[in-house]
């Protein structure tokens, strides 16, 4: 569970270029609808929010429901106007937040 999230994006981009970002984080995404061998419901435990910021400005975020597959994969785009740092965060039902950062440079 403590696996590092995997994030794929280019190291550098031209000014104004729209780049694609792919993220994958390990998580069971327990839906809360399944039952264990004793017939008891397994409590829900999912990532309920994902957010991506660039230099402190929001780029993309999403609210997730139990209908998201285990190990949520999220792919989206971002327009690069300046060099800077992407911050990613995944918020768990139990309040823990998995975070990651990636830097991107402008093409000379």
């Amino acid at each position: 569970m403590a696996d590092k999230p995997r994030i794929k994006l280019p190291k550098e981009a031209a000014k104004g270029e729209v780049i694609q970002i792919k993220t994958l984080v390990s998580h069971v995404m327990e839906s809360g609808q399944r039952k264990d061998a004793q017939g008891k419901a397994i409590p829900r435990k999912i990532i309920n929010k994902f957010a991506c910021e660039f230099n402190g400005k929001p780029v993309f975020s999403c609210a997730l429901e139990p209908a998201i597959s285990a190990n949520p994969y999220i792919q989206f785009d971002a327009r690069i106007d300046e060099a800077g740092t992407f911050k990613f965060s995944w918020t768990d039902d139990d309040g823990t937040v998995i975070t990651a950062e990636e830097k991107i440079a402008l093409k000379a």
Binding site: S31, V59, F60, S61, C62, A67, I68, S69, R79
Partner: peptide, 30 residues
């Protein structure tokens, strides 16, 4: 939304002008 799931909600995506494109991919349960 997935209208045949026990809970119809799947995800709500929020874009900004910084997204560049309103495009996303996810994997869902049906």
């Amino acid at each position: 939304l997935a209208d045949g799931n026990p809970n119809a909600g799947v995800a709500t995506l929020s874009f900004t002008p910084l997204s560049g494109k309103a495009e996303a991919s996810i994997r869902i349960r049906l």
